[in-house]
Amino acid sequence: MSADQKVLSVKNLKTYIYVNNRCNKALDGVSFDVYRGKTLCIVGESGCGKSITASSITQLLPKLSRIESGEIIYHSEKGDICIDQLERNGPEMRALRGAEISMIFQDPMTALNPVYRIGAQISEGLKYHSKNTLAQLKQISIELLQQMGIPLAAQRVEDYSHQFSGGMRQRAMIAMAMSCKPKILIADEPTTALDVTIQAQIFELIDELKQRHNTAVILITHDMGVVAELADHVAVMYMGNIVEQGTIDDVLRRPAHPYTEALLKSIPILGKGKQQQIIPIQGSTPDPYQRPKGCQFEPRCPYATEQCQIFPDSQPISGTHEALCWHSEKVLSHA
């Protein structure tokens, strides 16, 4: 098994959401690859489409939305599967969801069902995807909770979610997601609701599981610090496009898109003290129903020229690195 084997390819994906007779082009041509045993971080501000990317892959989109065009290909051991062609709740999709591709949601309190015991919720996926007796299922849930570092797992498996603390709930969510040993784990802001000391525990856990099972992880976050610590590959999103992607070194050390460059300059970095200069990005993100004509970042961009009225093509920087900007050369030489 080679180290950089693709498990998922997304090609030119367009997902539109229809609300009040208006169309929000939430994803407008997104392409990326996910590799076995690697972490892809999708980073961006609220409303940029990072969560819609995740729910497109798992087909958990809101009702009034649809994948307009593009491909989501899951490279399974039995051959390629076009996820976008599957019926949302059809048998093929349900066979994948939870077993091959699973998801950790942002808020563990609302993602867990308050009227079922934790153990029942953890083993629910296994019940559908494997043939185990009830006693075996319980045993597996206890083992999973133990692996997640929850003390007294044999007793805790009988608890309800309100008896767990925030960090423990998120561990239970991870146990649930990992129960069928998925090939792809999608974590949508898994630690945003948690404190930093608990966040550190959760990240250590996800990293350990990734290494043990060679799972591909798609981590969605808004925190550049998290990206720097965990990612192998990074995709920066802005207004429904991936504006820049590459390996972590490419993107963080040699940003080629003005948005990435500006984003990195606008955050205070721990340990740099009071002397550090932070430079805010001017203006605010545009209304998704009144988008700029060409490049989406053009109204806020210091590099903008006439050319930016036309939507840019993806510019390759190196074999692993690309940016969606006419002026990426200039941005690179500037940094």
């Binding site: 000391t197 998290v226 720097a228 955050i267 970095i269």
Partner: peptide, 8 residues
């Protein structure tokens, strides 16, 4: 030490 730092 628990804070992720945006500096490689």
């Amino acid at each position: 030490s628990a804070i992720p730092i945006a500096d490689l």
